[in-house]
Design a protein around this nucleic acid. Structure first.
Lengths: 245, 245
DNA sequence: CGGTAGCTTGATCGGTATCAAACCGTGTGG
DNA sequence: CCACACGGTTTGATACCGATCAAGCTACCG
């Protein structure tokens, strides 16, 4: 069912301009920030710039993890599924996020573009080669992995113990903070994903997501000018809800 | 409430024999396996062997993460809480597990011994110094972090989408596999943690854990000779339940 | 023994899922 | 330009799984 939409992984991905990493606008958000202008040319030599359209896959769970990716634009949905179709979104990757690294040699999740996505694609082997030459790079990746792990622990608390309202509040604040970090307005928050995706990320059904949004709106905490645009009218209140206070 | 039991973090931890890492029995399970017999002496120089009793803490959430740990014996419960007391166990660390590493400079979870625990304690700074000298060590830690992240993703699927029965089945199999990896019998599975801990790990209440166990027992899939000992009578059946089939 | 912490079992409640239908926005073809 | 189809969202009615409330039970320990 879900699998119907899966296009051959890299088939539809268009390589784009082999741009100068030196002038990359989001370099400070990525592992590339570990290298200076001179060193970065080594990255340029092994990177492919690729573009994906919505519903195209960067990689599939269980596939050999030969490539790793730096997302530079757009949003990638990472998810896992059960045989009967239940799915859990484990994260939404956007500009600056490094995805596809695995210790087992195969990807652990599906990675699907939900907007047009630009990414830097690296052969895992070549990137590892680079790490051997530039230990700073490896240090950076270790720190990024540790930080991912902390985010995952926070998400476990959310999934295991928070109510629907607390989940939604946490989610909206997370998107707002991410937008701010990327230099976009912290409100209104743009939701690039569907209600289904949000539900699958928060362990809720689409109906509960919708109803809970409506509830927050009625409480005057958010506004919903469009279904994919959320105005945070009371950030403090939202933060208190998110933390279960 | 929970906080009442917290003894000053390292106060009660007893340093034990400054043993020879060279003869460490579980070295192959730890990041130390990245180093050979000659190189391992560098680790010996910076390690402290410490012991904790049940309910003692290795570290606290929000504390400065000055030390990192290799668990060598026993089980450590890692958890996060909400202000009203709800808690989520994010993992149980046992022999071979590396804990306490953070990118933010402060711990992200509480780490509490639930059995007598032996651990190797390292100053974070010194370990980082060692990594600079032995890149293999850093590579190892990166791989271990990636593998932790994959486990965290699996746990998100469990928390967000699995039923109580599926959660329990997954949990028991995880413990069984871990025991086998440590050279212990895969059945009966020993549960070093209380029902409360299990519930807090699986996002369930203690009553649901108890009832679900009883259900699996009535179905003939497990046996419960004692409350902390589970015989896997039908591993295949348990695996099918765990995967939602 | 008696006290206590942890576990089990029973009865009931409630938050979220499920089932169902209407609504909305957008793109398409006539 | 309109009619319609379609995916996504909202809203309503009802069901149910796991939570909550409430007793007992068990094992261990002083």
């Amino acid at each position: 069912m879900v699998k119907e939409n899966i296009s051959n992984t890299a088939a539809g991905a268009k390589p784009v301009t082999k741009g100068a990493c030196k002038h990359c606008e989001i370099r400070h958000l990525t592992f590339c920030s570990a290298l200076d202008d001179r060193e970065i040319s080594a990255v340029e030599e092994i990177v492919d710039h690729v573009r994906y359209q919505p519903q195209q896959y960067l990689f599939h769970e269980m596939d050999e993890s030969n490539d790793v990716f730096n997302v530079t634009m757009g949003t990638v949905k990472l998810y896992k599924g059960l045989p009967d179709g239940r799915t859990q979104v484990t994260g939404f990757a956007s500009a600056g996020d490094f995805i596809g690294f695995s210790s087992r040699g195969e990807y652990n999740v599906e990675a699907e573009a939900i907007t047009p996505v630009d990414a830097c694609r690296f052969s895992r082997k070549r990137l590892v080669g680079l790490m051997e030459h530039y230990p700073k790079l490896e240090r950076m990746l270790l720190n990024m992995a540790a930080s991912e792990l902390e985010a995952a622990q926070d998400q476990m608390l959310l999934l295991g113990r928070k109510t629907a309202q607390e989940k939604l509040a946490t989610f909206l604040l997370m998107l707002s903070r991410r937008a701010a970090r990327l230099g976009m307005p912290a409100s209104p928050v743009i939701l690039p994903m569907t209600r289904t995706d949000i539900g699958d990320y928060l362990g809720l059904t689409i109906e509960t997501v919708s109803r809970t949004m409506a509830g927050l709106k009625k409480a005057g905490i958010i506004d919903l000018p469009r279904s994919h645009e959320v105005v945070l009218r009371n950030r403090e209140g939202l933060e208190e809800i998110a933390e279960g206070m």
